[in-house]
Structure formats: structure tokens, C-alpha cells
Design a protein around this nucleic acid. Structure first.
Lengths: 219, 219
DNA sequence: CGGAACTATGGCACAGAATGCCAAATATTG
DNA sequence: CAATATTTGGCATTCTGTGCCATAGTTCCG
């Protein structure tokens, strides 16, 4: 009666993922020809041989189809960060994992990014996606450092700092330097980052006291 | 014929701003009682004494009404940053401006934030709004430093770093520490930031070479 | 095997968002 | 006042997203 079968839940889950993958695959194939805004959900559903209603049982919105693909990157990145050698510097761990991720960009990923670039309604989603990426980095760093991201602000701040050059590289690539190589932009961003950091540190150690402990001035 | 009157454009612009302000004021007043999702645009338009169609001539979406208010903060923050004394450290300039901004939070602002917090469809907009805030900081810093943000990555990186503790404070406040004082969270975040920065610098200068110039290792 | 319980799907219907179009109202200029 | 330009309102339309219920397909168990 109230007994819930153990095996079917795993099977159902795999089946669900399969349908979801099929749906987004069909949608992305259609998006190679059509503009995102002109493509309706009815068309996606019809092309996948599924009813419109069923589509909304797998995706909450049309943007979600693209987002589902992009979100896998955040998962991979987070996994890479925690899998990184434990003695590696947190900032370096984030940046190496990121470089590994961008190196794996294939043609499909490039087409996807191009689609997002030229679709205003997807650019907002892209901001949200970048934020998800950052949050993934925060959690991965928190796990690495054995800290609770809900209580301690260190993971937040460290992750944001480590993410700064990556963000800059992505934004430059996404923006007005799309033609250039991602790896090259990443190099430039990391170089700028290190230079600025060194300058900041040099400015600090010029002060007499080795550790600045003063409270910041109230306005 | 082809002559365009000079004065009317300014008047029309002010009138437009007035209508826009009136609309969002009415909407926010309605939102003190009602939930965001249950409030329809027809109601807003009716309460403001305009047609539904006219509403969409002033706002692109329902979320835009809230967003219009929140976006003013970004404008103010950017203005504060560029108006800051020129000899002030860029990072400090950003953080002082931000503190000034959060200190000016009034009851209406708090109610607005509370609304966003408890409305899922607005939380996405909140991410976008934070990103707009960051971009405003980037541009303000670029102007301060006399750099072109489109070509040079320094403004991006510096702004993101300077913004990191502010972001952490906002997120903590927005998240699970809503009851606490914003200024206090900001103090905590800035303290953590300075401590981490000092630790990072100390780690750097422990190396023999004063300036690290090595290329980051390829994966 | 065969019915019972459960789950996924499809097909409505519906409210609301957002946009295009055109006519009426309103404001502006000469 | 008349001509012109701008703003507004109302209508129609397309699409999104969701609730509801009947139906088809599956799994469980006697």
C-alpha cells in the first residue's frame, strides 16, 4: 500500500534525464537555423514528438533549455575545483580548473555562446548563469577550505577575487573581443590580475606596520 | 518641416520621467499589500489612471517597475565613486561610496528589498541588478583611472575585487542574515577582506623575489 | 494472468504578458 | 484657429505558463 518500490526511482530518474536531454538537443538543433525569439515552444515540442504540456514538465521556460546545457559547466567546474590537489593555492585551483574547462570548449559550446551573444533575452540568462558559476565556485572553495559558506564570508570573498580575472576574460570574450582565443584572453587577464595584486601588496608593505588592523573609518 | 523644436524635447523628457515615477510609485504602494505575482499590470494601470497599453510604453515588463527603483542606486553609486577625492585608493573609494549608499537606506528601500527577497521571480532580477551595480562600478573606476574599460581589463578586475566584500555583505544580508544591520555585515566583510588580502600579500613576500613574474602553468 | 495502484502524457481551458495597429484625444506650433 | 505632431486608449493577437482531468502506459502483487 504505502510501500514505495526502491528500484523504479533510479530508472525513472534516468528516463527523465534522457527525455530532458532529447528535448534540449532537439531545441538546440532547431536553434541553428531559427532565431531564439521566433522559435515557439509548440515547435520544439512538435519536433520532439511530445505535447506542449509535457515540455513544461521538463523545463520551466524556453530559456531553461539553453540554460540546462550551460549549467553543466558550473557542475564540472565545481567538481574540478574540489578534485584539485589539496596543497594547491585556492586561487590557483580555481583558475587552473577554469582553464581546463575553457580548453574543452567544443564547436557546440561555441555555437551556444554565439547564440546567447546575439539574443537579448538570453543575455540576461547569461548573467544569471555567470552568477551560478560564481556560486558554484564559492561552494567548491568552501568545501576545500572546510568552511561553512553560510556563516563564514571567506569563501564568498576568496571565490569572487579568484573569479575576477576569469570573469574579465569571459566578459571581454563575450563582449567586443569575441574573435580572439579564449586562452589568450585568459592569459592576459591573469597577467593583469597578478600585476595588480603585486602592486597592491607593494603598496601595503610600504607602510611601517606589517599587519593592518585598523577599523575602517565610518562615514 | 524638418525643423525640430529645441525646448519640447526637454519638457517631454521631464514629463515622461514624471509619468514613469508616478507609475512605479503607485505600483510599489500596491505591493505593500499584495504579492508581486498576484498583482496584474491591469491593476497597476487602473490604479494609476492609465490604460494597460500605456504602461508598456513606460516599462518593458512588470519586473521593470521594481528594477527602475533599484537601478537608481547604481547611478548614485557610480556618481559617488567618480566624485570621490582623486588621491583616494580605488578600492577604498568604491567601498566608501558603497558604505555611504547603504547608510542612506530608508524604510522604503528596506520594504523593497524584503519584497525582492520573498519573490522568486524578482530574485533573478536581483542578480541582474547586482551585475548592473558591478558594471557601474567598473565604468566609474575606468573613468577615475582614465582607462578604456573596453580595451583594458584593469577596471574590470579592480572593480570586481573591490566589490567582492560588498557583494559578500549584500549576499549575507540578503540571504540568511537579513535581520542584522547592513553596516555591521559590511564591517565584517571588509575586515575579512583586509585580513585575506594581508595574508595573501604576506604569502607573496615570503618568496625571495619581490615581484612574481612567472607565467601560470598550463594544465 | 489480470486487476489495482501509480506515473507519465495529452488535451483542453484560462489568465496574464507583451506587442502591433489604428483611431481618438491631447498638446504644440505657426 | 487651424495644421501638425505626439500621446494615449482600445482592440486584436500571439505566446507563455499553469491548473485540471481524462487517458495511456507501467509496475506491483495476489
Amino acid at each position: 500500500m504505502v510501500y514505495t518500490a526502491p528500484m523504479p526511482v533510479a530508472i525513472a530518474e534516468r528516463k527523465r534525464r534522457a527525455v530532458r536531454g532529447e528535448l534540449s538537443e532537439v531545441a538546440l538543433r532547431l536553434l541553428t537555423d531559427r532565431a531564439f525569439d521566433s522559435l515557439t515552444i509548440d515547435e520544439i515540442a512538435a519536433a520532439a514528438g511530445v505535447s506542449r504540456r509535457t515540455f513544461f514538465r521538463y523545463f520551466t521556460s524556453k530559456e531553461d533549455v539553453v540554460f540546462a546545457f550551460l549549467d553543466q559547466w558550473a557542475v564540472r567546474l565545481a567538481a574540478d575545483i574540489v578534485a584539485r590537489p589539496a596543497r594547491e593555492d585556492p586561487v590557483a585551483a580555481v583558475q587552473n580548473s577554469f582553464r581546463q574547462l575553457t580548453a574543452a570548449y567544443d564547436d557546440q559550446a561555441l555555437a551556444l555562446v554565439r547564440l546567447v551573444r546575439e539574443t537579448p533575452s538570453l543575455q540576461e540568462q547569461e548573467m544569471i548563469n555567470r552568477e551560478h558559476l560564481r556560486i558554484a565556485v564559492v561552494n567548491a572553495l568552501a568545501m576545500r577550505l572546510g568552511l561553512d559558506a553560510e556563516r563564514d564570508m571567506r569563501p564568498q570573498i576568496l571565490a569572487t577575487i579568484a573569479f575576477a580575472p576569469l570573469d574579465a576574460a569571459m566578459l571581454a570574450w563575450f563582449g567586443n573581443r569575441f574573435g580572439e582565443e579564449v586562452g589568450h584572453l585568459l592569459d592576459e587577464a591573469l597577467g593583469t590580475f597578478e600585476r595588480e595584486r603585486d602592486a597592491m601588496c607593494a603598496g601595503l608593505q610600504s607602510s611601517t606596520k606589517p599587519r593592518t588592523r585598523r577599523r575602517s573609518a565610518r562615514s
